[in-house]
Structures are given as structure tokens and as C-alpha cells.
Amino acid sequence: MIKLTLKDIANHFSVSISTVSKALHDSHEISDKLKNRIQEFAKENHYRPNKVALNLVNRSTKSIGVVIPDILNYFFIQVLYGVEKVANERGYSIISCVTDHSLKKETMTLEMLSSGSVDGLIISSVASERQTSKHIENVKSIVDYQIPLVMFDRVIDAIECDKVIVDDFEAGYKATKYLLETGCKTIAIITPINKTKIGRLRIGGYKRALKERDIPFDDKLITPIGAKDDLDFILSFILNDKNIDGILVLDEITTVKTMAIIKARGYHVPNDIAIIGFTNGQLSKYVTPALTMVSQHGTYIGETCAHRLIDRIEGLSSPGGFETKVVKTSLIVRESTRKIPLG
């Protein structure tokens, strides 16, 4: 079947393409008789508007770009779900891109998306400690081009735009305080995000909880781990300290791996060692014992980002007046931690 175009309809009725377009959009400028004839003809011949052509005319793509650093992190999957849910409700589609924590890939992705393929961008940038002035300028250029931008989670303070962030300090504090209240006295941290601002904030909350109990901070209990590091080997050093009875792990996959290794070495979770992780994903619910986790409410963050961005795109937000929304976390208590003693 040959696809019917506006030009074909115009030729059929010996009118201009503009007249056909107005008739299909029920414009009062066209007589009811001609409108009805054109609309009926379009319907009978299964006319569908060319969205690409309409976008060029309207200077709108009805698409938003979402840039995340890691697709294996369940938190970012939750955010994507929230963004897509709201985008669909408001008539937008999304183009999602993963940077794999690469500055080069992020720069290339932003250049591609900001060249006119989307109406606005939602970004969680790469680790802040790796940001250079050139990289910040690359992100800033999006704002300079007047492309609406919302940053979430891993944001750049120097960029003026709407932001949605997690209260990571409180999250670290809340998790550590709970471990202490259950009777843990020596709590180690395993952090795959040691070089990020959010990692530092979570450790800051950990320090605050220790200070309230007059427990001195020991930096030897903080263990950074990279993607290529052998977690089993690293945990052997942590477990050599027989006093450790609690572990806080700053991402979900590492939390699950940590518990598996600890159990394989003959420790009981939570009686010997209690464990709390971050990001309340599917993995944490179905392992044994089920893991106590810090929920960052990724779906809500995605929904909030999408609403803010689309409001900017559609001119529903006042120019400037950028806001930073801080989202509180929740501690989802399961079997990997002891119960708080009564009394």
C-alpha cells in the first residue's frame, strides 16, 4: 500500500497543502463542507501524519534523552522506568543512552542528543572527581543552546539547571545507626563508588552515626573496590578482623556478592555479620536471607525528572528559577540484619 501524503490529498481536492493541513486540524478557517470531505477522504485512505515532517515544522521531536552511567545498576533501571512512564503519559518518547562511566562516551552522547534529536535531556553524569573543566563546559553548552536539562543523582554543582538528588548523607547515617541499634559495634564499608560525591556523602553519614555513639572513626574499615578487583580476595582481609560484625555496602550487586562470599566462609548472616546494602532491587528480595536495603526511590526520581523536564519544554515553568529536589531514602528492613533489642 502506497502511503498517502498531504500533497496527495491536496492534489485530489485541487487545494493547497496548507488547506489540507488546516482541515485535518479542524481549523475554523476552512469551511465545514470542505473539512468534512477532506477528513473523510483521509480516513477512508488510512492517512497517517508524517511525524518527522511535523516535528520539523513545529521544531519539536516529542522525544527526551536520558543519559545514565550504568545499566546494570538497578537504581538507574528504576529511574528509566519512572521517566518512561511519565513521558508516555504526556505524549513523549525517550531515547536512553548508557555512558559506562566514560567521559568520552558521555561527551559524544551529549553532542549527538543536543544536535536536534530531542527536546530536552535528563542526565546522571559520570563521577564528579573525574570531571574536567572541558567536560563541565560540554554539559554547560546544552544549557547555553537553550536545551532544557534536568540532572539527577550524580549532578554537577556548577551547572544551573533543575536537579533531583538523593539525601545520601542521611542514607549513610540512617543505615549505620540501624546497625548500631541492633548491637553491631564494628562496621565496615565496602564502596564501589569511593571517588564520587555520593559515596563521600554516605560515608559522611556513617561517620556522624559513629560520632553520636562516641565510636572513633577508623579509615581502615573503609574498603574501596573497583570493577576489576577480586571481591573474594579483598573480603578475606576484612574478615581477618574478627571484631567486624556489620557491613554496609554501597551498591546492590556488590551487596549480594558480599553476602554470598561471607556465607561460603562459614559466617552466619546476620548473627555473625549483619549486612545492609543500597538500592532496593529485585536481587535483594529473593536471596537468602533477604537483604536489608536502602531504597533511593528511583522510580519516583525518574517521574519527578520527567515532569520537570517536560514542564520546561512546554513552557509551564517560569524561566530560570531552577530548583533542586532532595529525595529522602527509606530503610527496607529484612533478614540480613538483627532485630533491635527491646527495652
Rank of each mutant, 00 (worst) to 15 (best):
V164D: 03
G91E: 05
I30N: 13
Q39Y: 10
I253F: 10
H268G: 04
I275D: 01
S336P: 11
E170Y: 14
S114Q: 05
V79D: 08
D8C: 10
D230M: 09
V52N: 09
K7M: 11
K339I: 04
E303H: 08
G199L: 06
N11W: 03
A23D: 07
K328S: 13
I95T: 05
I64A: 02
V66T: 00
T107M: 01
Y178R: 08
I156C: 00
A260I: 02
I253Y: 15
T258E: 10
S124T: 02
K174Y: 03
A171L: 08
E40Q: 05
K85C: 07
F217G: 15
D311E: 15
K325A: 09
N280T: 00
G226W: 04
D214C: 08
D8F: 12
Y81M: 10
L283P: 02
T191G: 05
S236A: 04
L4A: 12
G321Q: 13
S284G: 13
T19I: 13
K35E: 11
F322L: 15
C97S: 07
T299K: 15
V66A: 02
S16P: 01
V166S: 14
S27N: 08
I187T: 05
K211C: 04
L110W: 01
N88I: 13
Y74E: 11
E111F: 02
Y286A: 09
Y206A: 14
E106Y: 12
I222C: 13
L149A: 11
F169E: 09
G120M: 06
I193H: 03
I94Y: 09
E106K: 07
K22F: 13
K51H: 08
H297E: 04
I94A: 07
I273F: 11
T337W: 08
D157P: 10
N194E: 11
Q296K: 13
R308G: 03
V98Q: 03
T279G: 10
E160M: 08
D8V: 11
G116M: 07
D100M: 01
S330C: 03
K7S: 14
G246F: 09
V249F: 03
L309P: 14
I68G: 01
I159R: 10
I71V: 01
A42Y: 04
M151C: 06
C184A: 14
K51L: 05
E323L: 13
I332G: 00
E40N: 04
I313N: 09
L110C: 02
N11E: 15
Y206G: 11
C184G: 03
D219C: 13
L309E: 14
S102L: 15
R90T: 04
